[in-house]
Simulated scan of single mutants.
Amino acid sequence: MNTDMIKMALILGLLSWIGPFAIDMYLPAMPTISEDLGASVSAAQWTLMSFFMAFGLCQLFYGPASDVFGRKPPLYFGLSIFGLASLGCAFAPTIEWLIALRFLQGVGAAAVMSIPRAVIRDRYTGYEATRLMSTIMLVVAVSPMLAPLMGSAIIVPFGWRAVFLSVALATVLAMLLTGFALKETLAPADRAPFRFNAMMSAFGVLFRDSGYMGLTLIGGMGMASFFAFLATASFLYIGYYGLTPFQFSLAFALNALGFFTTSQVAANLGARFGSIAVVKWAVAGYAISACLMFIVVALGHDSFPLLVAMLVTTYAFLGLVVPTSMVLSLEEHGPIAGTAAALGGTLQLMLGALAIAVISVVFDGTPLMLTAAIALCSVVAAGLSLLTLRVVPQEAVA
């Protein structure tokens, strides 16, 4: 990887870190927030779901906007909203206010989810794009490993509200990074004037593309299973297994290790075996691992180290699926890359929000419902792989 790609990976990775940072850093505080604000576990989980709903839906705005105005202006707009909402979260008086402000926070965070994908497509395609996406995943993967640790280090002496103040400070740094380090990648001559009919037409093209939809939904089911884990992890690890917030942060970091490791070899495997083959085999491994985990838990083998080991293995397969499927889904849609990235992000995060809504209803405080949800997501992903990937054009692999 050349110097320019490394620089781009660091910039886009740090920007992409903002959304996960706002999620992972406050996870250790969820039981405390529930207790402090007198809210139920389900209500506390809604602070995650409201964030993901806005995070997903608003990408439909930022993607087309970045095709019209360029990549940087929508980033400034989104980061401004995100920073102000983070300050509001720090002073939320009730769980209802926190849910509403988390929704607004998601509105701003959506900008740094979809636009970096379009920036990658502006500059690179094929294996170079996959390599860059994987490198960005390397930076983003630091969030679930370090953010909970940072969150627990802040929560113990200063309380959960200080977490959101820290996130607001990180937003200021992201604004400076966008202003001084990120170059505009969409030239004025390449920008498309906003036309509602053209946007609807672009969405129609994407919805009719079974390869695009298959790859997007496969990645979405993987993300949905991880979001179900996010919504239950702190209550399961701290409430059921008795871990401290610091111990929870370490265990949570282990779950990111498998994803982090395999995402770095996705491009090399794609170059050797073909990207579609990598996605197919990785989805199969994900499904087998997730189903075995559910069977083990359902049979009554309630061991915390075993559960963590199985989660690490399951999410290691997702480290191959997510970056490769993201790049492949955009390969054939360069002229509407912003719209394609936005729609893909929206669909995936809506699946994540749905997973959180379902798990918040059925979660019983034990690992059974979580592993069932992960297994279900994996089976759906495997079915989508069998039904749709065979029609993805072969030239999209090269």
Rank of each mutant, 00 (worst) to 15 (best):
G108F: 05
V312M: 12
G38Q: 03
L101Y: 07
S360V: 09
R161G: 14
A110W: 01
V391W: 09
K183Y: 11
Y212M: 11
I120H: 02
G204C: 07
L177V: 13
A357M: 05
P148W: 00
S86F: 07
A110R: 06
D4T: 04
A340I: 06
S152Q: 05
C377I: 06
I276M: 12
Y76D: 12
T216L: 05
I359A: 05
G214V: 00
A189N: 09
L389S: 10
G70R: 06
G300H: 08
G204V: 06
L206D: 05
D302T: 10
A357W: 10
F164W: 05
F180Y: 13
A224P: 08
F252I: 04
S143R: 00
A22Y: 03
L15T: 10
T371E: 11
V296Q: 06
A43R: 02
R123V: 14
A373W: 03
G88E: 01
P157V: 02
L343F: 10
G270P: 03
L307P: 04
S42M: 08
R208T: 08
T171W: 00
F294L: 03
M200Y: 10
N268T: 06
D36G: 10
T216C: 13
A39V: 09
L320F: 15
V142Y: 07
G108D: 07
T244G: 13
Y124K: 09
T32S: 11
A228F: 08
G344E: 02
Y286A: 01
I374S: 03
W160M: 11
Y62H: 10
A44V: 03
F82N: 03
V139Y: 09
L215G: 05
M53V: 15
T130W: 04
D302C: 06
L387T: 14
F317G: 01
I18W: 01
A298W: 06
D36M: 03
G38W: 02
A39R: 03
E35Q: 12
A256K: 05
F248E: 01
T339Q: 12
G383N: 07
A287N: 04
A22Q: 03
A118Y: 05
G220Q: 03
V358P: 14
G319R: 03
V172R: 08
F52Y: 14
V163L: 13
M200A: 14
R71T: 08
F21K: 07
L173W: 09
S303N: 11
W160T: 10
A224F: 12
M310H: 13
F259H: 05
I154M: 10
L186M: 13
L146R: 05
T178L: 15
V167N: 01
L98D: 02
V41R: 10
P323E: 01
T185P: 12
D302F: 10
T216R: 01
A129N: 07
L173R: 07
G365D: 00
G13P: 04
A92N: 04
Y212K: 02
S275C: 11
L75F: 14
G38S: 08
Y240C: 09
E35A: 15
R102V: 05
L351A: 14
F52G: 05
L269I: 00
S275T: 08
A309S: 15
